[in-house]
Amino acid sequence: MKCDHYEARFAGVGGQGVILAGKILAYGMVSFEDCKAIETPTYTAQVRGGATKVDVVIDKYHIEYPRSEWLDFFLCLHQKSFNIYFKELKDDAIVVVDPNLTPNIPDNIPQKLVLVDLIDIAKQEMGKTLYAAVIAVGMFTGLTKIIKESNIQKAVLDNAPKGTEINNLKAVKLGIELGKKAFACKEKVVRLTLEDAKMLNNEDQA
């Protein structure tokens, strides 16, 4: 890992699979990057149809405080969740949202903002919205370089149900490319659409 300590939050509503995104990342960091990681998901009553999130705290050596303190990364797939969990962010953090589901973002937030049609991309390019979570961890990888591309792919494969390995691998690769594209863009606000995803997917196949 490129730094000693890193904190990421994946947020959305119940059923979108954001908790799984956190699990995969934590698993990857511990299994293949020789780091410590904890994940603290939101809990039961809060999860049913409501706002949900998972915080992943990563440290090269030891995690003492068992919750996130200052987030380096925040990905959100729903307005409901954004309103509750958009807090405790560092000024130089990265914020990723799906603007179709999270239309109200305050103006002039200090963080780098990536607007990506994540659910549309999952539906159109992968055939199912449930791949959004895996695309999301891919985007995390491409954007932050906290985990090696090969390692997040291994983590996704280790957590994929039997028979879904190929699609999950495809989804995480697409996410990585989307993330890298957003990383390369030096603007403070980056917009990624379905068209971008289509192009990246075609390049990949070409």
Partner: peptide, 10 residues
């Protein structure tokens, strides 16, 4: 407590 019960780590 709730933190210790629900925290996950390796």
């Amino acid at each position: 407590d709730e933190v210790i019960a629900h925290l996950s780590t390796a």
